[in-house]
Simulated assay, not measured.
Amino acid sequence: MKTSVIIPVYNAEKYVTNAVQSALQFDEVFEVILVEDKSPDNALEVCKELTEKHQRVKLFQHPDQQNHGAGASRNLGIKNASGDYIAFLDADDFYLPNRFDAEKELFQNPEVDGVYGAIGVHYWSDKAKEQYFPVYGDKLTTVYKRYPAEDVFPGLIGMRGSFGLFSIDALTVRKSALEKMDALMKTDLKLHQDTDFLMRLAFYTKLYPGILDQPVAVRGVHESNRISQVDSGKVKPATTRILLWNHLKTWAQNEPKMPDAELLHITRMHRSFIIANAPYIKKWWMILKYLLTDFRSIRSGLYNINFRKALF
């Protein structure tokens, strides 16, 4: 394997060295691409030191050297990658020694476009553990059983019951397979652009399960994680997920090969988050309306913990 590992770097001077070292332990890693996104800290200098120390580490910035977000940074990394495979890693996360064990076998099958696995949790400080352990615990983020490739997209959008999910840190994809997609990362999504990418990737390509019962990478949790603030409720989750599902709905409506059942389900999920985020009186008016016209929109929301919190 000749794998390019793409690491967007923003406000991560404390963590990026560990992330890079975790990737360089593998012979399968041909290069580590750092995309520094105008960090307010000293991350750029740390990245420069890493390129001087390690021949396989390459550093890029956006042409205007401004901040463009994780999605645009990953896109820039993909554009400059010269490996046959693409893997991703957030700058405050890290790989475990088994990261590419499944890939080495599965990618011998030319029908396999991508492989996904499970990730664990690491708390970078006692304070972070105190704040976010109720959210993440010591649980695996994983898909709960080994699904065929055609079930991954319906599973990720919630049509297969308790499907589970996987992180972009645990994904490896053939670079050539990305040409099947309508677009790479959506750059106007500030949060959940990786979730949007994974769902669309699962629609256009064939993704297969790798190691699901133990972590192949670790999510690093600290006090300034933006997504942790959403997951914990410090930022209202329904607000950010309305934007995600609105993107998915617009894409699904314009995708000629989208099955009607999947389009309807995405529409209902989008609606459920709108209901969750509505003012109290409007919320209950919408609930009564859709109980009469499309009760499954309500049921989709009731299965979502963020929707239940928003109701009461």
Rank of each mutant, 00 (worst) to 15 (best):
K236Y: 10
L198C: 08
I6P: 01
L171Y: 03
G83H: 07
A128F: 05
D90E: 15
F197E: 07
R268Q: 15
R56P: 01
Y147D: 10
F166Q: 11
L165V: 08
R99C: 09
N18G: 12
I119R: 12
S228E: 05
N98Q: 13
N246C: 02
S125V: 02
Y280S: 15
H192W: 15
Q65P: 00
S224G: 07
T141S: 13
D169G: 12
L59T: 02
L292T: 06
G220E: 10
Y123W: 09
I287W: 04
E179P: 04
G164M: 09
P215F: 06
A102I: 06
K186W: 09
E52P: 00
F312T: 02
T239F: 14
R268V: 00
V235Q: 11
K309Q: 14
R296I: 05
N75V: 01
R200F: 05
L76C: 09
P134E: 07
G158M: 08
P209K: 11
K257M: 08
I275K: 02
A278N: 05
H192Y: 15
K38A: 14
L96E: 12
T17P: 03
P237G: 04
F163C: 06
H192F: 15
I242C: 11
L263D: 02
D90Q: 07
D196Y: 10
H54I: 01
N42F: 04
K175R: 14
T195I: 12
L288C: 10
K190Y: 13
I119S: 11
Q253V: 00
V32M: 04
E111D: 15
L44G: 03
F30Q: 15
